[in-house]
Design a protein around this nucleic acid. Structure first.
Length: 282
DNA sequence: TCCTGAATAT
DNA sequence: GATATTCAGG
């Protein structure tokens, strides 16, 4: 969240911002649009009305801490890939890890097990106290909704990679969205490819009515045919791309009062950033 | 192990 | 019917 976070004291690399890709930030909320960290997301009255214990007040330092956590995870990840995470050193997160844990709990029920061959094997009882195992075992994630913003991020990354090099894992890493899985990306990529193919087929006609999301984000030049357009250097898999900024978690939020945000800007903004999924969809 | 296409669930 | 998730083959 803008002003409080992107200050120089918050830059681990020494206060330089020159690795940012400004074009990526087009359309993203500015610091002025976002609620300052010090501003509680849940008004006290609502919190008490719903018997919610108020969120602890967070400041830039909390965010910084969480950011380092995230970095650590990313670096651990990097040891198993060629992916160059050096450039990720400027990654910041606006999300605190505990929220991620909450999120995982949130969607834990719902999907019926398709495979019974585990012989009635224990459906991972996640006692919420074990984050690590929760992260590791196949916890059912809440259904991801690809918002326009999320999709734009996706398209940007794919464009930079070039369609040829855009594979789920890389895309996932570059998108740097907490909670986003390779499967999520793979699935969306599949759809996106179908869309591109379709677009090539009927170049003259407009997108079909079901292509809302895709049509909302223009297909980058680099994707139109050859995949070379991106900032790919040399040997195919060694991706070197600065990550301008992380995306916050944009999965659906469980709170029933999200519409009641007292910041008028924020209401609009939040509506824009994620889409509500009813916990009990169908 | 990862990617992709297809099947299936919501 | 649209979209996301999961499966299965390469």
């Amino acid at each position: 969240m803008g002003e409080e976070v992107r200050m120089s004291d918050y830059d681990g690399g020494g206060g330089r911002d020159d690795n940012r890709v400004s074009e990526w930030e087009v359309g993203l909320p500015t610091g002025d649009d976002l609620t300052p960290l010090s501003h509680p997301l849940i008004p006290p009255e609502l919190a008490s009305a719903f018997s919610i214990s108020p969120e602890p007040c967070r400041n830039a330092m909390d965010v910084n801490l969480a950011s380092q956590n995230t970095l650590g995870q990313l670096q651990a990840l990097s040891s198993s890939t060629n992916f160059n995470l050096k450039s990720l050193n400027q990654v910041r997160t606006m999300e605190l890890e505990e929220d991620e844990a909450d999120l995982m709990k949130e969607g834990s029920e719902s999907r019926k097990l398709r495979r019974i061959d585990s012989g009635g094997a224990e459906e991972e009882e996640e006692n919420g106290n074990d984050d690590l195992s929760a992260a590791k075992t196949a916890v059912k994630r809440p259904r991801l909704v690809w918002t326009a913003q999320l999709h734009k991020r996706f398209v940007d990354v794919v464009a930079h990679l070039g369609i040829k090099n855009a594979v789920p894992k890389t895309i996932m890493l570059l998108m740097n969205v907490e909670g986003l899985t390779r499967e999520n990306v793979a699935s969306h990529l599949q759809k996106y490819r179908l869309y591109l193919k379709r677009m090539q087929g009927l170049s003259s006609e407009g997108p079909s009515s079901s292509d809302h999301l895709f049509a909302s984000t223009p297909v980058p030049q680099s994707l139109q045919e050859t995949g070379g357009g991106g900032s790919l250097h040399g040997n195919g898999r060694h991706v070197q791309m600065p990550i301008p900024m992380p995306y916050p978690q944009m999965m659906h939020m469980p709170s029933p009062y999200q519409g009641f945000e007292s910041h008028p800007y924020n209401v609009a903004q939040q509506r824009d950033w994620y889409q509500h999924v009813t916990p009990n969809d169908k």
